[in-house]
Design a protein around this nucleic acid. Structure first.
Length: 579
DNA sequence: GCCGTTTTCGGCCCGACTGTTTTCAGTCG
C-alpha cells in the first residue's frame, strides 16, 4: 500500500475534526485538526515521509499527537480515533452539518432526538413537521431546512468561477463606478484581489460623497441582471454571467480597515488578529482597539493597519497565512516580481500548429507587449489534432523564424515537444539540437498511475536537450485535476539537471501552481513564466502567470525570463555541447 | 490539540445575523 498523499492526509484530518466536533469536543481542538489539514495541504513535501522521520511536527499546527495519527494512517490505512467515532456517528450526519444553517450542535440534536442520520431522513422529518417539536427549533427552522435542501438539490452547486472570467466583469464594474461623480475610492477586495485561481464571488469596497447615489448607480449598470435594494452601505448584485458582487461603501476614515478585512484571507486575518491580541490590540473591520488605552484607531490605508501591528505592508497575494506574518514582523518579505519585469516569452504558437496568427504577427504582438524576445514553439509531430508539425515542416519553420524580418524583437526557433507515454520525445535529437529552445509537455495519456507518470516526467527532465517542462501538472482549474505524479521527485530531478519549470500563465492552467512554484524556486530551479499564446491577444494573460509567481513569493531574480535572452541561455545547462 | 520576547498551563479572532429568545446559542464569513 503506497503512503497516503498529502491531500489524503488532509482529508482524513478534516474528517476527524468534523467527527470530534459532532462528538462535542471543545472547538479549539476541532480547529487544531483543521489547521493541521491546511498545513498538510500547503506542504510541498510528502507529509507521510516527514512523519516517518519524526519531522512532521516542524509544520505549523502539527504536534506530536497529530503526527502519531498521520503515522497510523500511513501504517494501517486508518486512524483509530476516526474508526471509533465513525461507529458512533453515521457518515450521512456530516453531510447534514454541511447544510447552511445547520452546524454540528443542531445536527447532533436532530440525530439524538429524531434519529436523523442522513439528508433523506432530514427531509422526511421536515416535511412531517417533526422538527418543530424540538426545543429551540420552530417552524422557521423547518422552512429554512427545506429551502436549503431544495437549493442543494437544484443541481446548481454554483461552482467557483475561474479568476479571469470574474475579473472580466468585475473590472468593468469597478471602472464604471470610478467614473461616477459620487465615487471617491473604489477597490477590488476578496480572493480576487489576492489573485486566487478561482473565486466564489467578488467583493468591492468604496468610499463616496453620496453613498446612496453610488449604490443606485451600481444597481443600474447594464451588466447587472438583478440587485437587492441599494442603501447607504452598498448593494448586492448579480451579473448576467451569474456572478455575485458585493459592493460595500464606507466612511473614508475606515477604508483601510475594511479593505484589509474583506481582502482576507480568513486564515490570514485570524492569524493577524491572534498576533495582535498578544500585543494587546484587537483588529476588526472598524479599526484597531488598544487594550491599554481603550482607544480605537481607524485607518484610511491598509499600510496603517499593518504598521500599527509592527508589520511591513503585506501584498494581497501573500495573505494566505503561509508565513507572511512572521516574515513581515522580521521585515523580511520578498520583493515580488512584477509584470513589467518580464523581458521575453518562451512558449507560443502560430498557424504552423494550432495558433491563429503568423510568426510575424505573433512577434509584433510580443513586441507591443514589451518583450525583447519570443520563442515560437509550435506543437511537435504527434500532437494529434491534425495540427502537428512533421520533422520536415519543422526545418522549414526554423528557416521562416530565422528569416523573419522584425525590428526590436528577437525571435527564437523552438518547439513544444510532446512527452510520449514512455517519456521519450517525438522529435529526434538531431532535430532538437538545431533549435534555440525546447519546451517539453505532456498532452496525452493523462491517466497513468503515479509511478509511471513520474518516470515519464523524469525521463523528459533528464533529457539533455529539454530546456523547460511546460504546464507540468496538466491541471485545468475547476475542470481537471492534476495527473498523479510525485512532485518531490520531479523537483529533485529538475534541480539536479537544471531543467527549468514553466508557470503557464493561461488563466485556466496557472500550472505549476503557487505551492509547487514556491517549492521549486526554493530548490533552486529557474522558473519561466510563459503565456502559451495562440493568438496575438494571447500575451494579455501574462498577469495571471505573474500572479501565481507572486503567490509563490517569487522575486524577479528567480524568474529566468526577467533576464535578457543571452543570460537565459547562460542559465541553461545546455548539455548541447555534450551531445 | 497546539503553542509560548509577558505563559510548559491557560489561553486560543471578531462581528453580524437569525430564530426563538426574555438575555442568547448557534451559525456564518
Amino acid at each position: 500500500m503506497p503512503d497516503p498523499t498529502n491531500s489524503e492526509i488532509a482529508a482524513a484530518l478534516e474528517e476527524l475534526g468534523d467527527l470530534y466536533e459532532l462528538d462535542g469536543a471543545i472547538i479549539h481542538r476541532v480547529v487544531a485538526y483543521r489547521n493541521a489539514a491546511k498545513a498538510v495541504r500547503d506542504a510541498s513535501v510528502s507529509v507521510s515521509a516527514l512523519a516517518r522521520q519524526g519531522r512532521a511536527t516542524e509544520l505549523p499546527g502539527i504536534g506530536a499527537t497529530i503526527q502519531e495519527k498521520v503515522l497510523a494512517l500511513a501504517d494501517d490505512g486508518a486512524i483509530p480515533a476516526a474508526v471509533k467515532l465513525r461507529a458512533r456517528f453515521p457518515s450521512g450526519l456530516i453531510e447534514v452539518t454541511r447544510l447552511p444553517g445547520l452546524g454540528p450542535k443542531r445536527a447532533r440534536r436532530l440525530f439524538e432526538e429524531l434519529s436523523i442520520d442522513s439528508i433523506d431522513s432530514l427531509r422526511a422529518a421536515a416535511e412531517g413537521e417533526r422538527i418543530r417539536t424540538l426545543k429551540g427549533f420552530g417552524p422557521k427552522a423547518e422552512e429554512s431546512i427545506l429551502a436549503a435542501l431544495a437549493d442543494a438539490g437544484a443541481g446548481e452547486p454554483r461552482a467557483r468561477v475561474v479568476l479571469h472570467r470574474a475579473l472580466a466583469v468585475g473590472e468593468q464594474l469597478i471602472a464604471a463606478l470610478r467614473e461616477h461623480p459620487a465615487s471617491e475610492r473604489v477597490e477590488l477586495a476578496g480572493s480576487a484581489r489576492r489573485m486566487t485561481d478561482s473565486v466564489k464571488d467578488l467583493d468591492v469596497i468604496a468610499t463616496a460623497s453620496d453613498p446612496g447615489a453610488l449604490a443606485r448607480a451600481a444597481a443600474a449598470l447594464e451588466l447587472v441582471e438583478a440587485a437587492q435594494i441599494p442603501g447607504e452601505a452598498g448593494v448586492r448584485l448579480r451579473t448576467h454571467t451569474g456572478l455575485k458582487i458585493d459592493l460595500r461603501i464606507v466612511a473614508p476614515e475606515q477604508f483601510g480597515n475594511l479593505l484589509q478585512h474583506f481582502t482576507g484571507s480568513k486564515e490570514h486575518n485570524m492569524a493577524l488578529r491572534d498576533a495582535a491580541v498578544r500585543k494587546g490590540l484587537h483588529v476588526s473591520e472598524y479599526g484597531v482597539l488598544d487594550d491599554s488605552t481603550g482607544h480605537t484607531t481607524k485607518c484610511t490605508t491598509e499600510g496603517e493597519v499593518y504598521a500599527l501591528l509592527g508589520l511591513q505592508y503585506i501584498e494581497p497575494e501573500l495573505r494566505e497565512n503561509r508565513g507572511e506574518l512572521e516574515a513581515a514582523a522580521a521585515a523580511r518579505l520578498p520583493e515580488l516580481v512584477q509584470l513589467g519585469d518580464l523581458r521575453g516569452d518562451l512558449h507560443s504558437h502560430t498557424t504552423a500548429s494550432d495558433g491563429t496568427a503568423s510568426i510575424e504577427q505573433m512577434g509584433m504582438a510580443a513586441r507591443e507587449a514589451g518583450y525583447e524576445y519570443l520563442a515560437v514553439t509550435d506543437h511537435s509531430a504527434s500532437f494529434g489534432f491534425g495540427e502537428d508539425v512533421s520533422p520536415l515542416a519543422l526545418r522549414d519553420q526554423v528557416e521562416r523564424i530565422r528569416s523573419a524580418e522584425l525590428d526590436g524583437i528577437t525571435l527564437l526557433a523552438g518547439s513544444e515537444v510532446n512527452v510520449l507515454p514512455d517519456g521519450s520525445l517525438d522529435y529526434p535529437d538531431e532535430l532538437l539540437t538545431e533549435l534555440d529552445w525546447v519546451i517539453a509537455s505532456v498532452h496525452s495519456s493523462f491517466r497513468m498511475d503515479a509511478e509511471a507518470m513520474t518516470g515519464r516526467l523524469l525521463r523528459a527532465i533528464e533529457h539533455p536537450l529539454v530546456d523547460a517542462i511546460g504546464h507540468l501538472s496538466g491541471r485545468k482549474i475547476e475542470r481537471r485535476a492534476p495527473y498523479a505524479f510525485d512532485v518531490e521527485r520531479v523537483l529533485e530531478a529538475a534541480a539536479r539537471t537544471g531543467t527549468m519549470l514553466e508557470i503557464n500563465a493561461s488563466p485556466d492552467r496557472r500550472d505549476i501552481n503557487d505551492v509547487t512554484a514556491r517549492a521549486a524556486a526554493a530548490a533552486g530551479i529557474p522558473i519561466v513564466i510563459n503565456c502559451d499564446a495562440h493568438r496575438v491577444r494571447g500575451f494579455e494573460v501574462a498577469r495571471y502567470g505573474i500572479a501565481t509567481a507572486r503567490r509563490a513569493w517569487l522575486t524577479a531574480a528567480e524568474i529566468a525570463n526577467t533576464r535578457p535572452w543571452p543570460e537565459v541561455q547562460a542559465l541553461r545547462p545546455r548539455h548541447r555541447a555534450a551531445v
